[in-house]
Amino acid sequence: MEDDLNNVSLSDLQLAIMRALWQKPNSTTTEVVEAVRESRPLAHTTIATLLTRLEKRGLVEVKRDGRQLCYRALLSESQVKRSMVSDLVSSLFMGNPSALLSHLVKEQEIDETELEAIRTMLEKKRK
């Protein structure tokens, strides 16, 4: 199971649900629905089904609070990002992280402000 948690791939909708849980841990299904509806008008049952699937995958934990189910993410946002970026680098850039950065710079996906922030991070990393 630990290996599965290091290799997490989520759809946009699953990510939206996880983001709702990262912002407000121990959310009821209704609270998750309301958070996700800000960007996507989906049925309560759709979100409930996806929460159940995420729980079966071991990505969220569910607890009963009276008549309501409360969900909590078991992985942090940084763990999910690390896993998904690692998968992207592995599959699309043949394991070469600098190829990803090079692509972003060449395609002008990174503006000057972001480039400066990256330079600053690199300088801190070198020290």
Rank of each mutant, 00 (worst) to 15 (best):
L104F: 09
S86L: 08
V85R: 12
V33N: 06
N7Y: 04
L122N: 01
S9K: 13
T29F: 10
R64E: 15
N6W: 07
S86D: 14
R19T: 09
S83M: 14
S91T: 15
E109F: 07
T30P: 00
E114N: 09
T46Y: 11
N7E: 13
V85K: 12
S86Y: 11
S98H: 12
R119C: 11
P41G: 03
E116V: 06
L54R: 00
L115C: 02
L50W: 01
T28V: 01
L69T: 08
E2A: 06
E77D: 14
K63Y: 09
R126W: 04
E34M: 11
V85D: 01
V33Q: 06
D3Q: 08
R67K: 15
Q14L: 00
L59E: 02
T45I: 11
D111V: 01
M18Y: 04
L100P: 07
E31N: 04
L21V: 04
V32P: 09
V33F: 02
G95S: 11
V36H: 06
S39T: 09
R37A: 14
R119N: 09
E114R: 12
V32S: 03
V62F: 05
S102P: 00
S11K: 03
T52K: 14
H103P: 00
E107I: 01
L15Y: 04
D87T: 10
L115D: 00
T52F: 04
K106Q: 10
V89K: 08
E116I: 11
S90V: 01
S90M: 11
V105R: 09
R53V: 12
R72V: 08
H44G: 00
V33Y: 04
T29Q: 10
E34I: 08
N6V: 00
Y71V: 01
R67Q: 12
Y71P: 07
K125P: 01
L104G: 12
V62K: 15
E34Y: 07
L59Y: 15
V8G: 06
L50Y: 14
L104D: 07
K24D: 02
A20M: 02
D3F: 10
E123Q: 08
S11G: 10
L21S: 09
E38M: 07
R64N: 11
T29R: 06
G66Q: 12
S39G: 12
R19M: 06
K127N: 09
L92Q: 13
H44K: 15
R82F: 14
I17D: 02
V105E: 10
T113D: 12
M94G: 01
S9Q: 13
T28N: 02
Q108H: 13
I47A: 04
R119M: 09
E112R: 05
L75F: 06
G66S: 13
L88H: 07
T49L: 13
V60G: 02
V60Q: 02
I118Y: 08
W22F: 09
N6Q: 09
A35H: 06
E31D: 15
V89H: 07
E109N: 04
R82Y: 12
R19V: 05
N6S: 06
I47F: 10
L69H: 11
L101S: 01
T45Y: 06
L88F: 14
S27L: 03
P25C: 04
L59N: 02
E123L: 10
Q108G: 00
